[in-house]
């Protein structure tokens, strides 16, 4: 492999990147260059208990690790793991059910028959994933009224040594 060959590859890649980024700027379908996590409304335990219904809001509300643990201990909500079956099987918050986000549309009927007025806490891997936010949005669109996101997810829960299940 000579140097010119590698340089040409770099030029082609850089040219393509430039074209892609330029097109993205002018295209009506353009997206942000770097995805950012959607900002959610933070909710404490008191708010959660007094007014769990947030169906009128565009985004789901968010709870932190401490609140998630208290809700879990008191049995105030069903926990929903939005990751795939494999990760769910490896380890999950104790008692959590699995609603994988990636094939949500394929199982709409099943989710439609769930009790939509219960409290649901959706989570995924941790701070770096947005599956829980996407899934919460889809659940709200389907008519679930009390959907919350635990954004610390599996990573925080596991690190805190809170109760878990696995297959």
């Amino acid at each position: 492999m000579n140097k010119q060959f590698l340089l040409n590859i770099v030029y082609i890649l850089l040219g393509s990147a430039l074209l892609g980024i330029s097109y993205n700027v002018i295209s009506p379908n353009g997206i942000p260059l770097f995805a950012e996590k959607t900002q959610l409304i933070k909710t404490g335990l008191d708010d959660f208990i007094t007014s769990p219904n947030n169906s009128e809001e565009n985004t789901a509300r968010e709870i932190d690790l401490k609140t998630a643990f208290e809700i879990h201990q008191k049995g105030l909500a069903k926990f929903v793991d939005g990751r795939d079956e494999w990760e769910y099987g490896e380890g999950r918050i104790a008692g959590a059910i699995n609603i994988p986000d990636y094939n949500f549309e394929d199982h709409i009927d099943k989710y439609n028959s769930m009790d939509k007025s219960l409290n649901y806490i959706v989570y995924c891997g941790g701070e770096d994933c947005d599956i829980s936010i996407r899934l919460a949005k889809k659940m709200k669109e389907l008519g679930f009224t009390n959907v919350y996101v635990f954004s610390g997810g599996w990573d925080q829960w596991f690190a805190a040594n809170f109760p878990v299940d696995n297959d």
């Binding site: 990147a17 892609g20 997206i31 995805a35």
Partner: peptide
């Protein structure tokens, strides 16, 4: 990662 997901989606098709 979420951070890189969009830039990959923007550049790869053009490559």
């Amino acid at each position: 990662s979420l951070f890189l997901q969009n830039i990959v989606a923007i550049v790869i098709p053009w490559v």
